[in-house]
Write a protein that binds this DNA or RNA. Structure first.
Lengths: 194, 194
DNA sequence: GTCTATAGGGCGATAGAC
DNA sequence: GTCTATCGCCCTATAGAC
């Protein structure tokens, strides 16, 4: 396999594993097994585990921002209030890219790390900048969007959707905090278990 | 030192370390050093690192819920809309208890863990139940409260407040997403650096 | 109640063959 | 481009003295 493709397939596998186990909890061996290569090969290709995570983070940010910009561009000069809902749906759709939003969230939790911390802060600031400057969100709109995004990330990370159908209180929480996304995250939780 | 006091001082130290480094990233030795005891003593007292984290999580939840209930009880039969702001302020005040809210957030990120995951989900559900059943929040109010709580946790975890005065875009983000809490988290970030 | 010493296991990274 | 073998470190947990 050419190096470019192999790189991408390892990054994809790493995104899923980092998203589920976190940075420290992920072993390069687990990433290697998920990608179907040997552990030393992963290290050889990315240098260090830290560098691998930084590339996963950058790739996740690139895709998130590209998705937002795609929605903004396609939206055209129509009504402004519809854009918020469109970007919100596009954001939730990114949950299909397994581990992508969770890897971002894991990076956000690593602010104390001298290398990952600065990259994570820069990434979050870039997201906010795109919402304000390119999507035209007010600061209140950006606040609501980011806050609910963090809530959604947390609900997925904690695995609450896995109890949606068996635990009425889990259902109530999800319906309250992520109403329109409930069907999606419940479906993804089932797929994940299978 | 009597066992009870020693226990509490280790739990306090562990809360700070777990909050900053996460569950997997925390060594029992780091907790021991922060508490001024030897590493084997920490393990001896709590059995395992996992058990220690579970106790940190439970202690954090207990304090969070006790704080909420205190505000609800003191508030009396007065205006209902004021209670939301009071609980919000009480929540932000818990940031002074170093690592407490961050340890909770770290637990929320461990949903995939077979032992910690269930405890974290039960904890979040209990918080939601208190907001709905004891504070009398509507589901929309609970959603807004929890979402902004997650956002605040994320801003603190990522260390954004450390750039508040040097980076105008960090300031803009914090002012947008945690307006009334900005002075507090900036002060805490400074204390933490010193 | 608290320590020192250390066993035991796992992980990131390197060496080097093919 | 990819692997096997392995080094060396770090970390949890145990043993056992004081």
């Amino acid at each position: 396999m050419p190096a470019g493709e192999r790189r991408e397939s390892i990054l994809e596998a790493a995104t899923a594993v980092f998203g589920e186990r976190g940075y420290v909890g992920t072993t390069t061996d687990a990433v290697a097994k998920a990608a179907g290569v040997s552990q030393p090969y992963v290290v050889r290709m990315f240098g260090t585990k830290e560098q691998l995570f930084l590339e996963v983070l950058q790739r996740a940010l690139d895709r998130l921002l590209a998705t937002f910009r795609g929605v903004i561009a396609e939206h055209g000069p129509g009504g402004k209030e519809a854009l918020g809902a469109l970007i919100g749906n596009a954001y939730a759709d990114l949950l299909r890219d397994r581990g992508l939003l969770l890897s971002l969230m894991q990076a956000f939790m690593l602010g104390a790390d001298p290398v990952i911390g600065p990259a994570a802060r820069a990434g979050l600031l870039e997201v906010y900048a795109v919402l304000r400057d390119e999507a035209g969100f007010t600061s209140d709109e950006a606040d609501a969007f980011l806050s609910h995004g963090m809530m959604l990330n947390t609900l997925v990370a904690i695995g609450m959707a896995g109890s949606y159908e068996t635990d009425p209180s889990a259902r109530e929480l999800i319906d309250a905090c992520a109403p329109s996304k409930a069907p999606l995250i419940v479906r993804l939780a089932k797929q994940h278990r299978a």
